[in-house]
Design a protein around this nucleic acid. Structure first.
Lengths: 215, 215
DNA sequence: CAATGTGAAACAGTTCACAGCA
DNA sequence: TGCTGTGAACTGTTTCACATTG
């Protein structure tokens, strides 16, 4: 089978859909039946035309003069985002950050339960964090397989980030979130996203400085 | 005094400068004297023309046929980013994430020492985390003032994020990093950046699904 | 007639390609 | 000669404006 007729969702839209989804679920919880692009825009903190363009990519699901049906829209967005059954997440690195992420309940409730936790240090291997046992990094493949993990999180120091990322790919994980600073490269077939906390602070410091300069 | 003649650095460039800086510092540690845009691009994981454009915004600091002087470039980037004396950071919320961020050494070493930690729960107030005492949220202004904090981090549940952000602004913090999901609004004069972990996982899940669909 | 869906304009950012300089 | 600095082309994204329609 060749190329599937996919709607080809722009990356910027993909990044906003989860935000809409969160807002819509809140609305649904409050019993709201329909929502206008204007309202949803206010909830998501974006422009109304932007919301309409984003949603129109999924299909013409709005009713002119009325708006969008909340429940239906939730279903459609979930469909596009692949939000069916929960997706198992494996975290590499059981240091401060790895532990915090494991304990953070927001993932599991959002459909991303942490199912595996591995670390290279024998000091922490065997520990239990939020009900998850820390396994040695050598067991990564087994942990991934036995717990059906499809998403990986790198929460190691920068020095091991590339190695660990390679190991994740080796273990069959092709979608990876990296918290380690520095460059990590992956084959094209792998999706790597990065959260760079130090850079975020630098950016804020830049703006702070701009502010101070202008007074 | 009116508008200062600032070079007007594009936001995308601002976001890359810390990455260059990190790479340059590594190079300097290895005793490297000069670097070409090509080399720096490889280190930062971007296009060489992009590096040149970014650096040319700071000034014409490169030598044709040679490259850029590492030490000098470090100085210039630090100047632009406002990387002079360390910038005190206050964290609101001493839960899993707040603790992990406090303990994470990368901030202090990067020039962003955590100087204050506050929480609304009397359960954790008084605790010491990585040498920092948790103060009650009511003390926020005092903590900010006494420790000279200029950056704030919101590490609370979504339900309190807006309130806490308002309190930070009230306390004189105009540069804020928000880890709570959901919409938080701030006046134009405040810089708010957001790290949305759940959204990151959703985006990965989307790409993972695309992958599965195409086989 | 209120709100969608969407061409077209505006904008931001990236990449190319090459002139020009050390 | 090798590499910078940059105009020009291109690509992706946002916003506007309005014809369309339930």
């Amino acid at each position: 089978m060749e190329d599937i007729e996919s709607p080809l969702v722009p990356e910027a839209t993909v990044a906003r859909l989860p935000v809409y989804l969160r807002g819509l679920v809140d609305l649904a919880d409050n019993g709201t039946i329909t929502v206008s692009s204007e309202q949803l825009a206010a909830i998501a903190g974006v422009n109304a035309a932007n919301v309409r363009k984003d949603l129109s990519i999924l299909g013409s699901y709005g009713k002119r003069g009325v708006g969008y049906e909340v429940d239906f829209l939730i279903q459609q967005i979930k469909l596009v985002l692949g939000d069916g059954d929960p997706v198992g997440v494996v975290i590499v690195g059981a240091g401060n950050l790895g532990r915090a992420l494991t304990r953070y309940g927001g993932f599991a409730s959002g459909g991303f339960p942490i199912k595996g936790l591995v670390d290279s240090s024998s000091e922490v291997v065997g520990e239990k964090i939020a009900g998850i046992t820390v396994y040695p990094i050598e067991e990564l493949s087994n942990v991934v397989e036995e717990n059906n993990c499809t998403l990986g999180i790198v929460a190691t120091p920068a020095s091991s980030a590339q190695v660990v990322t390679d190991q994740l790919i080796e273990a069959g994980i092709y979608s990876i979130l990296n918290f380690a600073p520095g460059l990590v490269t992956v084959p094209e077939s792998v999706t790597l996203r990065k959260v760079d906390l130090a850079t975020e602070l630098h950016i804020l410091a830049f703006h702070e400085q701009q502010r101070e300069r202008n007074e």
